[in-house]
Simulated scan of single mutants.
Amino acid sequence: MSRPVIGVIANSHLLNDTYAVQAVGDMNLEAIAAVCDALPIIVPALPDIVALPDLMNSFDGFIFPGGRPNVHPEEYGEEPTPAHGEFDRARDRLALPLIRACVDAGLPILGICRGFQEMNVAFGGSLHPEIRDLPGRDNHRMPPDGTIAEKFAMRHTISFTPGGVFHRLMGTEQVVTNSLHGQGIKTPGSRVVIEGWAPDQTPEAVHIADAPGFALGVQWHPEYQAGIDPVSRPLFAAFGDAATNWANGKRSPVRQIA
């Protein structure tokens, strides 16, 4: 039997500051292949050449990964400021409607970092431009120096809603994760259910209420060492199971995730 096919939404990038490319981190692709037992395919975030119906008919699930550019604040009714950083409007135009279409259809999605924020904005939520500037909040950004292992090192605990989707999935109410983000949820979207919080009460895990398929998002980066990390592996494994079910004509409602 062929493996399910997972689309990974790319980010715009400039090679040598001049040549435009679409890029996805190897860690995302490796996690899909190793833990989901699926075929990862990079999807260019170029809505003028990638049509939603084609995507919906071609893939068994989508991962919306992290990326340096942030969701443009105009997508949630605010004005851009220097604190919002860089933007990728093409990814905004592809990712936000694709998230809504996937949720409506029950096609599995997993949002990671920027993808987590995209899920919130897709359902009418808003974002803080810089978490570390808020009173009582910690600095969640990537450490500026060090090796990859040091940048992706465990940074803080996350507490889950007792009995919720993530508690059931992880088998525990508290885990430890990395932290590499500047922005975060300000106002949750209409169907966005927050189920995980950092010690400073920054939202870190969400699901989409009443979604007919797998629709989870996390603010941390589970793709790092996904095959051996006790938090990352069950998340990717569950997503992979949902994609396999979709490929076989079955849905995996959020309420059934265990």
Rank of each mutant, 00 (worst) to 15 (best):
Q201P: 10
G67S: 01
F87M: 10
L52A: 02
T177Q: 07
H207F: 01
S179N: 06
T177G: 00
D48M: 02
G213N: 00
D241M: 11
S58T: 04
F239I: 03
E118V: 01
P80K: 09
A238L: 03
A226I: 04
L15C: 03
A205W: 02
P108R: 00
H167L: 09
A198W: 00
W220M: 05
N70W: 04
N16I: 14
M27N: 08
L107M: 15
M170E: 05
Q225S: 11
G125C: 09
M119Y: 01
T147C: 14
I148N: 15
Y224A: 04
M154C: 14
F214G: 02
I49T: 09
A237R: 02
D48K: 07
G182N: 04
I228F: 12
T18N: 13
V103K: 07
E78L: 08
I112N: 10
P144S: 11
H181W: 05
D145M: 10
D37A: 14
A34V: 14
N139M: 12
A215I: 08
E78S: 15
M56S: 09
P82R: 05
G249P: 10
G163W: 06
V5F: 09
D200S: 02
M170A: 06
A258S: 13
E86K: 08
H207E: 07
N248T: 10
G182P: 01
R233V: 15
M1L: 14
Q225T: 09
C36Q: 04
V103M: 07
M142C: 12
P69I: 00
A83T: 12
A149H: 14
S12K: 13
C36Y: 00
G171D: 05
